[in-house]
Computed example of a mutant assay.
Amino acid sequence: MGNKFYWIIIFSTLLVNVIMLQMTIESYFGEEYKHVWTFSSIAIISTIICLITFIQWNKQEYK
């Protein structure tokens, strides 16, 4: 995979994290606690994908 592909995945997962943080805060203040867990779970999965992609990119770039 090329470096651009890694960066696209990294930035898109970071974008998802920012959006999920906003939606989690809105749900918390709106007292919709079921949505808080859903949005937080999506953000955690996105963070794991971002971290794995960063590690793979780092290995490819600096091997």
Results as ranks from 00 to 15, higher is better:
residue 1 M to I: 00
residue 2 G to K: 13
residue 3 N to L: 08
residue 3 N to Q: 12
residue 5 F to C: 12
residue 5 F to W: 12
residue 5 F to G: 07
residue 6 Y to T: 00
residue 6 Y to Q: 07
residue 7 W to M: 12
residue 8 I to Y: 08
residue 9 I to F: 12
residue 10 I to P: 02
residue 10 I to N: 06
residue 10 I to L: 07
residue 11 F to M: 05
residue 11 F to G: 06
residue 12 S to D: 02
residue 12 S to Q: 03
residue 13 T to W: 02
residue 13 T to M: 14
residue 14 L to P: 00
residue 14 L to W: 04
residue 14 L to D: 01
residue 15 L to P: 02
residue 16 V to E: 00
residue 16 V to C: 11
residue 17 N to G: 10
residue 17 N to D: 09
residue 17 N to F: 15
residue 18 V to Y: 12
residue 18 V to H: 05
residue 19 I to H: 00
residue 21 L to M: 14
residue 22 Q to F: 15
residue 22 Q to K: 12
residue 23 M to L: 15
residue 23 M to N: 05
residue 24 T to A: 13
residue 24 T to D: 09
residue 24 T to K: 03
residue 24 T to W: 09
residue 25 I to M: 11
residue 25 I to Q: 04
residue 28 Y to R: 02
residue 28 Y to M: 10
residue 29 F to V: 10
residue 30 G to H: 15
residue 30 G to W: 12
residue 30 G to R: 14
residue 31 E to Q: 10
residue 31 E to R: 05
residue 31 E to S: 12
residue 32 E to Q: 10
residue 34 K to R: 09
residue 34 K to V: 11
residue 34 K to L: 15
residue 34 K to H: 11
residue 34 K to I: 13
residue 35 H to Q: 12
residue 36 V to S: 01
residue 36 V to A: 04
residue 37 W to T: 05
residue 38 T to A: 13
residue 38 T to P: 04
residue 39 F to E: 01
residue 39 F to T: 04
residue 40 S to T: 14
residue 40 S to V: 13
residue 40 S to W: 08
residue 41 S to G: 15
residue 41 S to T: 13
residue 42 I to A: 01
residue 42 I to W: 01
residue 42 I to G: 01
residue 43 A to K: 12
residue 43 A to D: 11
residue 44 I to A: 14
residue 44 I to K: 03
residue 45 I to E: 06
residue 45 I to K: 00
residue 45 I to L: 13
residue 45 I to C: 07
residue 45 I to D: 06
residue 45 I to T: 07
residue 45 I to P: 00
residue 46 S to M: 11
residue 46 S to L: 09
residue 47 T to C: 15
residue 47 T to R: 06
residue 47 T to N: 11
residue 48 I to Y: 10
residue 48 I to T: 14
residue 48 I to R: 05
residue 48 I to V: 13
residue 51 L to H: 01
residue 51 L to K: 04
residue 51 L to Q: 01
residue 52 I to R: 14
residue 52 I to D: 08
residue 53 T to H: 03
residue 54 F to K: 09
residue 55 I to G: 01
residue 56 Q to L: 12
residue 57 W to S: 06
residue 57 W to H: 11
residue 57 W to I: 00
residue 58 N to T: 05
residue 59 K to G: 04
residue 59 K to D: 12
residue 59 K to H: 13
residue 60 Q to I: 02
residue 60 Q to V: 08
residue 61 E to A: 08
residue 61 E to I: 03
residue 61 E to C: 01
residue 62 Y to A: 01
residue 63 K to M: 10
